[in-house]
Write a protein that binds this DNA or RNA. Structure first.
Length: 432
RNA sequence: GUGGCCUUAGUGUAGUGGUUAACAUAAGGGACUGUGGAUCCUUUGAGGCGGGUUCGAAUCCCGUAGGCCACCCCA
């Protein structure tokens, strides 16, 4: 291999390495999600990181920003157009159809966790590779599942300890009532076109619902008078939405109705929701979701209602940080083995092996270090106990064990050490 | 994709044209050759990258990369 320019040792733009405390924190969030989602009857699914490009263009919508400018699309060696997944719903729905999961008892409830990719200009809380956990419940139009999905999302965030959350709720109507609303809205906007900002003028025809997101004052003023989707819902959508609200209230989930909430995918119908944190600046959405009753049919399947949500893991972590919530990050070490004198190391190594095979987290010093330095290391590693192995111990057949919290030391016969630890650590963990 | 701000040891900062780039902290070693968290000593380690101006650049200029903030949009 030739040596040319030195390697640029930097992760690609908008990506980052996750290790140490961040990695532990992320794993904790994931484990918490797994435990809770399974308690709600969800099952894991893992889908590929990339899919055929059309899967996303067809589901998310040709006119959306994600499809227009944010997808990582490439051709493989046989010329297929593939795309790194920008979101998790379309792949799950694809898998649902491919494996004929419709023959399972419905609704089928699936959860996932994994990286998503969007080519955007990076900022805090917005990177090109980011992690989402999400759920999809496919096959039921019961408003109970809407309420359950929303409440699961909130339950999860509250389980982590988040308190400052704002839940926004809306109904986007269905294929029956939304188109007529969009026409009414377009008509209204055309009438006041002169008063819209430049961006919004462009949106009127392209995606009029998006105008509700505009932050410009003159647009906002106009929108106060604009027709609202909730006033144009058909009887079915109206009843469904009312039922969802009442079910949410019955389990104590607080929400704010937000008739201007429009999510960035074309496939949403009826219930749409989003949870925000006030601490995160412009990237304030921790997660969101909604019903997508038309998507499965759009993919060529039988008409099948479905609903889901996704949470941005990095944003959840940011929100936790902003609220000053401390969560377990690093895994604790039970035992640190301090070796005194080179000749004791082989015995120490064997002892360590026995501890680890009993399920005790144990580590030792490598290389030569003074006992003092080893103690320092044990402290830094957060070990519960330090076990001393040296010529004196080997000679007497007894080892000193130091409780690092209290500083108390006991002596235990060599062959009883593994069991002694097993007992101590078992009871200690039981108490906590 | 648009506009703005920023980039100095692992981390957090100082220095704003002039001899060895400072401080704190972390890391290694020691004072304490068999006992941690304190203290003291000591060692290692840095101006994103590429050009230019200048006798001389971390400092000024241009470019580029990355980060951040606001848009756009979303998790």
């Amino acid at each position: 291999m030739e040596r040319g320019e030195p390697l640029e040792l930097r992760a690609p733009r908008g990506t980052s390495d996750i290790f140490s405390r961040q990695a532990g924190l992320r794993r904790y969030l994931e484990e918490t999600a797994v435990e809770l989602f399974e308690r709600y009857g969800y099952h894991p699914i893992t889908t590929p990181i990339f899919e055929r490009t059309e899967l996303f263009t067809r589901s998310i919508g040709e006119s959306t920003d994600i499809v227009q400018k944010e997808m990582y699309t490439f051709r493989d060696k046989s010329g297929r157009s593939l795309t790194l997944r920008p979101e998790g719903t379309a792949p799950v729905v694809r898998a649902f159809l491919e494996h004929k999961l419709i023959s399972q008892p419905l609704p089928i409830k699936l959860y996932y966790s994994g990286p998503m990719f969007r080519y955007e200009r990076p900022q805090a809380g917005r990177s090109r590779e980011f992690w989402q956990v999400g759920v999809e419940a496919i096959g039921s139009m019961d408003p109970t599942i809407d309420a359950e999905t929303v409440s699961l999302m909130m339950h999860y965030l509250e389980t982590l300890g988040l308190r400052d959350l704002g839940l926004l709720l809306n109904s986007m109507g269905c294929s029956g009532c939304r188109p007529s609303f969009v026409e009414v809205l377009k008509a209204y906007l055309e009438e006041h076109r002169a008063n819209l900002c430049i961006d919004c003028k462009r949106r009127v025809q392209l995606n009029p619902l998006r105008i509700f997101d505009c932050k410009k004052e003159k647009c906002q003023g106009l929108l106060k008078e604009a027709p609202l989707i909730t006033d144009y819902l058909c009887a079915d959508c109206k009843a469904h939405f009312a039922e969802v609200q009442s079910l949410l209230m019955s389990v104590g989930v607080e929400f704010k109705l937000e008739p201007s909430l429009v999510r960035g995918f074309d496939y949403y119908t009826k219930t749409a929701f989003e949870v925000r944190s006030p601490h995160l600046g412009a990237q304030n959405a921790l997660g969101g979701g909604g019903r997508y009753d038309g998507l499965i049919e759009e993919f060529g399947g039988p008409p099948t209602p479905a609903i889901g949500f996704a949470l941005g893991v990095e944003r959840v972590i940011m929100a936790l940080h902003c609220e000053g919530i401390d969560l377990p990050g690093d895994s604790a070490l039970d035992v640190f083995l301090a070796v005194v004198g080179k000749e004791s190391k082989p015995e120490g190594f064997k002892l360590l092996d026995r501890l680890r095979k009993l399920g005790i987290a144990a580590d030792m010093n490598y290389g030569d270090r003074s006992l003092k330095a080893q103690m320092k290391l044990a402290d830094r590693m957060g070990a519960l106990y330090t076990l001393f192995v040296g010529s004196e111990e080997l000679w007497r057949g007894m080892c000193k064990i130091r409780d690092m919290k209290s500083g108390e030391q006991v002596e235990v016969a060599f062959e009883k050490i593994p069991q002694w630890f097993k007992k101590q650590i078992g009871s200690r963990k039981g108490k906590e």
